[in-house]
Simulated scan of single mutants.
Amino acid sequence: MHRDHDLRIDVLGSLRAARHGADVRLGPPQRRTVLAVLLCGVRQVIATDRLVDCVWGEHAGSASVGSLHVHLSHLRRTLGSDSIVRHVHGYALAIRQDQLDADEFDHLAALGHAALRRNQFRRGRQHLAAALALWRGHAYEEFDGAPWARGEIARLDAERLGALVSRIDADLAIGERDVVGELESLVVEHPLHESFCARLMVALYRAGRQADALAQYRAHADHLVESSGLAPTPALRDLQLRILRHDERLTIPPRQADDKETTSDDEQDLADPNHHRKEER
């Protein structure tokens, strides 16, 4: 089946689409919702009844299915005739991984994580930074709060935080010291996220700011007690003790593997952005 190679859809922010490098109008809110529901289940068949329920909810009526078909017809004209495939009981969005920014993010993040597992910190950082640069705001921004979007938004937000933590790990591993300001902002934004607190403590200590690193631990511990009645984890308490003792391992980044090292079979598979969808062809 021929598909439009110049189609691009972005959901890591407000929903938008482009063909041949030019933005296209996706139409009124209901039509945008139809597309967003299909994107949340990309390459899966979404039942007609579910589409109607997601778009019209309790306001669905006898004319809703007909309206849905009209919206789908307009979307096909806008995105390409092969972009939406009709099945017996529903519809599926038929796009490649490199045509959707969320898929591209997943692919680049997976490459970055794979590189870090091999101690290829510079290569991993490059992939993870490229993945994070795709974000323009909150995923499915205009549909925040919609029950049908909640699961995919939560998944993408969790993957974004994971990629950010790993990118910061790569920064620390290669001796990058300009991460303190970023980590300070992240700790304010995610006050209960212990991973950011721990990494800020390490970054401050490596910058010669032991007192600030210990103060960060106390601030995090106080906030935990006040907000949830919990105490820092044993791992964070151990990090505090290592900082107090001037553990030399905190000042020496882990040994870096040569970035020219031959990639593993897994990484070679990941290098193909459609490796796990070849069976579609």
Rank of each mutant, 00 (worst) to 15 (best):
C54W: 03
D10A: 14
I95V: 11
P234S: 04
A22Q: 13
D272F: 12
A110L: 07
F143I: 12
S166W: 02
R206H: 09
E248H: 14
T251R: 13
A221T: 01
F143D: 11
L72V: 01
E279N: 12
G90S: 07
A102C: 02
I252Q: 15
R242Q: 15
E194R: 09
T262F: 00
H138S: 14
R43Y: 06
A36I: 02
R19G: 01
V11N: 08
D171A: 06
L183T: 00
V52I: 15
R277I: 10
L134C: 06
E261S: 12
R118W: 03
R31N: 04
T78A: 02
A213E: 07
Q99P: 07
E176A: 14
W135P: 00
A17P: 08
E226W: 11
E261F: 07
R122D: 06
P253Q: 05
H2C: 06
H74K: 01
T48H: 13
L186N: 05
R32G: 01
R118D: 10
T33P: 06
L172R: 00
L224Y: 03
G80D: 02
D259M: 00
T251D: 13
I95D: 00
N119E: 07
T251E: 14
M1D: 10
D6S: 15
A94I: 07
D266E: 15
L100A: 01
Q99D: 09
D49H: 09
T48V: 15
R150H: 13
S227G: 03
G80F: 02
E141L: 14
A203V: 02
E189F: 01
R160M: 04
W148D: 08
A131E: 03
V42L: 13
D98N: 13
R245S: 11
Q97I: 06
S81I: 08
L236E: 06
A60L: 08
Q126L: 10
V45N: 08
R50C: 10
G41L: 11
L93M: 01
E280D: 15
H20K: 13
L116D: 02
V34F: 03
G90I: 06
W135I: 01
D178N: 01
P253W: 07
V45G: 08
H113K: 11
L192N: 08
A211C: 04
S166L: 04
R255W: 03
V202D: 04
R76W: 02
R199A: 05
H2Q: 13
E184G: 07
R3L: 14
P232N: 05
G181Y: 04
S264I: 09
L35G: 06
G27W: 09
